[in-house]
Design a protein around this nucleic acid. Structure first.
Length: 195
DNA sequence: CACCGGATGGTCT
DNA sequence: GACCATCCGGTGT
C-alpha cells in the first residue's frame, strides 16, 4: 500500500478552510509494528489568540504551544488526561492556529488498530474520538513538531465523501462565548464521527 | 513546590 | 448520566 502525501503548500490556507479540506484526507502513521491509516471524518478549528478555547489564547507562548507559532503543516500533540491528542498546525508563522483531528474512519492496518485498542472492541470504537484514533494509529508525544507532509506521520491524498456538516465544538463548556463558535466540521452520516 | 483543571474515554448505574 | 483514572501544563507562592 502506497500513499501520496500532500505538499507543504496544502496547509497554507485559512484555518477554517483547512479544517474542511482535511475531511476526506488520509491520516497515515508508520511504526515498527506496521502502518495504519484512516480517512479524516471530523475536525475542529482552534484560532488563537482570540479563541478562548485555544491553548494559544492571548498568544500564550510556552514550550507546549511553541510549535503553533511556527510554519503550518506540523503536528501539535499534547496529553489530555490519559490520552494523546493530534492537531495540525495552521496559519502563518506567529499565528498560533490549529485543527484538531477528532475522528477517522479506519482504512488500512485495522488489525494493528484492534491490537492497540483491544481485540474485542467494536469497529466503531477503534477511532471515533480524538484520543481513540491516536492510540489506534500509534500517534504519541514523540510525534510533536513532526512535519505532516512526509513519513512517518503524514496527511495523504484522500477521496470524496458526502456533504460536510457544521456545529459547535465539543468539551469546551468553560470557554465563554467561544463555546458557541461553529468551528466543528464532520462528514454527514459517517458513523465514526464522535458523539 | 502545591494546587487546579482540563479539546477524553471507559465503566457502572 | 455520574464517576474517576491519571498526568501534565500553567499559575501562583
Amino acid at each position: 500500500m502506497s500513499f501520496q502525501p500532500v505538499t507543504a503548500s496544502f496547509f497554507q490556507q485559512p484555518t477554517l478552510e483547512l479544517a474542511r479540506s482535511l475531511l476526506g484526507m488520509l491520516l497515515v502513521k508508520e511504526t515498527e509494528a506496521g502502518t495504519a491509516s484512516g480517512w479524516i471524518v471530523e475536525t475542529e478549528a482552534y484560532i488563537g489568540p482570540g479563541d478562548r478555547a485555544a491553548h494559544s489564547f492571548g498568544n500564550r507562548r510556552t514550550a507546549r504551544t511553541e510549535v503553533m507559532f511556527g510554519p503550518p503543516g506540523h503536528a501539535y500533540t499534547y496529553v489530555m488526561h490519559t490520552h494523546c491528542l493530534l492537531n495540525v498546525v495552521s496559519g502563518p508563522v506567529d499565528h498560533p492556529e490549529v485543527v484538531l483531528i477528532r475522528a477517522v474512519e479506519p482504512y488500512t492496518g485495522t488489525d494493528l488498530m484492534y491490537e492497540r485498542r483491544g481485540r474485542d472492541r467494536k469497529e466503531r470504537d477503534l477511532t471515533s474520538g480524538p484520543g481513540k484514533l491516536t492510540k489506534a494509529l500509534g500517534i504519541t508525544m514523540g510525534d510533536y513538531g513532526r512535519p505532516l507532509f512526509e513519513s512517518p506521520l503524514c496527511i495523504a491524498e484522500g477521496k470524496a465523501f458526502g456533504p460536510v456538516e457544521t456545529g459547535t465544538r465539543i468539551g469546551i463548556e468553560n470557554s465563554g462565548e467561544a463555546r458557541e463558535y461553529p468551528w466543528r466540521f464532520w462528514i454527514g452520516g459517517n458513523r465514526f464521527v464522535s458523539k
